[in-house]
Design a protein around this nucleic acid. Structure first.
Length: 497
RNA sequence: GGCAGGGUAGCUCAGAGGUAGAGCAGUGCCUUCAUAAGGCAUGUGUCGUGGGUUCGAUCCCCACCCCUGCUACCA
């Protein structure tokens, strides 16, 4: 039994939870559940990022204090995650007093190590936005929102010596001391580290009031990104002493969308190196998807609410569809139409129908244990492919193993025609039905990380209680030993749509 | 512009120097235990374009076209 610590990014509370957030979070949940299933000691962290100018401004607009605004919006995330059965172990909020205190300690540590120094930040500032813009963001030299010429401002701030870590980062990533996946993303990071000279980054803001005060100079606040990254430590109970790390440290996998890879692959590891804290083992950046061919964005107004989709396909359906539809790591396109197609073919006609036909065949029958050698072998291969796929985060491959098993069982039923056997060969009938029930039991396990509710429904129809479910996974993976004594029927798992 | 990845059946993608595959959709047949579900059968695709290497390339090389990503500090 080993430990498994997985994180999602903390989501910025200014956004409403959307399908993109759900994608990352469901993926993390599947891994967390999978690792719990195989007996690992798991910690799954998610949460919300709650500081920064944008939040202060939207709170103002809504006539609330920033804290009220954060409380409200953070709760929305928790609510959505609950409705999607996200089994997080902690939901960290960066406005938690404990997070704030520990961040200050960590920053002090960096100051003591001489890795933070005082400097000047110079930039183009739009007074209306209360924001600096990089020259590239400007449109014809004007603020993209107000069409006004920004003013050149200089302010005091503190810098983190990011530049000191360029070589070591390059080496670590090259030697897999820090694994970045998928490969093309790793190449991007390497390309960046090889071609650009890393510059120190400003980590405090003078003009941002809604933030964690910089301990050495309270007129400044700590830049949100710097502070937010530390959630991965504070979220599992770190107290700020690099020599005393929580038992779950380091993260085994840190999941995120590709847009925030840079911070996680460069700035974050540099901070850890600076603090002399071990690096995460693997950083995985997944792709984006378009919805019906369109980029999802606020300005286009086509942000999809995951709850709305879950209402159509059920929470398990959404979880499954998200991960089945796009190879993890790549970009892809999804749509309601595609979801309907796959829901009907995989879940209604595939899994749902199979469960329903088997349970009906077994109804009111007394079935004794039998071991079908063929199935025993098949199940072994399926499990091995499935586990290999999940170890490499290829959710879609694990799912296609499940589908191929469903197809295999359907073929078996058609070949054996058990509905005829009741009259011709009662012994064979027993063996066939037992084999089918065992197959359902394995399916319930296989789908568990993806579709926990459906999995539980199948277990309970098979009369398998909780103790049975939580016993050693190696036992559960055997074929042809479990007794089925209390078979019951269940309503359609996935009604055809 | 530079760097990286990609262009394969209607759709999503896999593949590998020897004359192309899977799933879904479509079509035909069989079946009835099941959610009008299931099984079987079925693809003559210029494997982006033009050259080259080779006995032979879609898979190697060159050029070109197209698509996507990255090109930091978004305060």
């Amino acid at each position: 039994m080993s430990k498994f610590y997985i994180t999602t990014p903390i989501y910025y509370v200014n956004d409403k939870p959307h399908l993109g957030h759900a994608y990352t979070t469901v993926a993390a949940d599947v891994l967390a559940r999978y690792h719990r299933m195989i007996g690992d000691k798991v910690f799954f962290l998610t949460g919300t990022d709650e500081h920064g100018l944008k939040i202060r401004k939207s709170a103002e607009k809504a006539g609330k204090t920033p804290q009220e605004w954060c409380d409200e919006n953070s709760a929305k995330f928790e609510l959505v995650w609950d409705s999607l059965n996200i089994s997080y172990d902690n939901f960290i909020r960066t406005t938690n007093p404990s997070h704030i205190e520990v961040v200050k300690r960590a920053i002090k540590e960096l100051v003591e190590k001489n890795l933070i120094y005082r400097g000047k930040y110079e930039g183009l500032y739009c007074v209306d936005c209360e924001q600096y813009y990089s020259p590239k963001e400007l449109i014809n030299g004007l603020c993209p929102i107000h069409r006004k010429k920004p003013v050149k401002l200089v302010e005091d701030c503190y810098f983190f010596k990011l530049s000191a870590f360029q070589k070591i980062l390059l080496k670590l990533i090259d030697d897999k001391g820090l694994i970045i996946e998928p490969e093309e993303r790793k190449n991007e990071v390497l390309g960046f580290l090889k071609s650009e000279k890393l510059e120190d980054i400003a980590i405090t803001r003078e003009r941002v009031r809604w933030g964690i005060p910089f301990p050495e100079n309270e007129s400044q606040t700590i830049y949100v990104w710097i502070e937010a990254l530390l959630n991965y430590l504070t979220g599992i109970g770190w107290q700020g002493d690099p020599k005393e790390l929580p038992e779950f440290w380091p993260p085994d996998i840190q999941l995120m969308a590709k847009d925030i890879l840079r911070f996680h692959a460069v700035v974050w590891p540099a901070m850890l190196l600076a603090l002399e804290i071990p690096l995460p083992k693997k950083i995985f950046a997944h792709g984006f998807f378009t919805f019906a061919g369109q980029k999802m964005s606020k300005s286009l107004g086509n942000i999809i609410d995951p709850v709305e989709i879950a209402n159509l396909f059920s929470s398990d359906g959404l979880r499954y569809l998200l991960l089945a539809s796009v190879p993890f790591g790549q970009d892809g396109d999804i749509s309601r139409g595609k979801f309907y197609d796959r829901y009907n073919s995989d879940l209604a006609n595939g899994l749902g129908n199979l469960v329903s036909r088997v349970l009906k065949l077994a109804k009111n029958k007394k079935i004794t244990v039998y071991r079908d050698k063929n199935f025993q072998e098949k199940v072994k291969v399926i499990w091995s492919n499935y586990q290999k796929a999940l170890e490499e985060l290829a959710f879609e491959k694990a799912i296609s193993e499940i589908q191929s098993f469903i197809s295999f069982v359907n073929q078996f039923i058609d070949e054996k025609e058990p509905w005829k056997l009741t009259k011709t060969d009662i012994n064979e009938f027993n063996n066939v039905i037992y084999t089918l029930l065992e197959s359902l039991r394995h399916l319930a396990w296989l789908i568990y990380p993806f579709m926990p509710e459906t999995s539980n429904k199948i277990f309970s129809a098979l009369g398998i209680d909780k103790d049975e479910k939580t016993k050693e996974f190696t036992e559960a993976k055997k074929f042809g030993e479990v007794k089925f004594e209390k078979i019951s029927q269940c309503s359609p798992l996935f009604p055809r749509l």
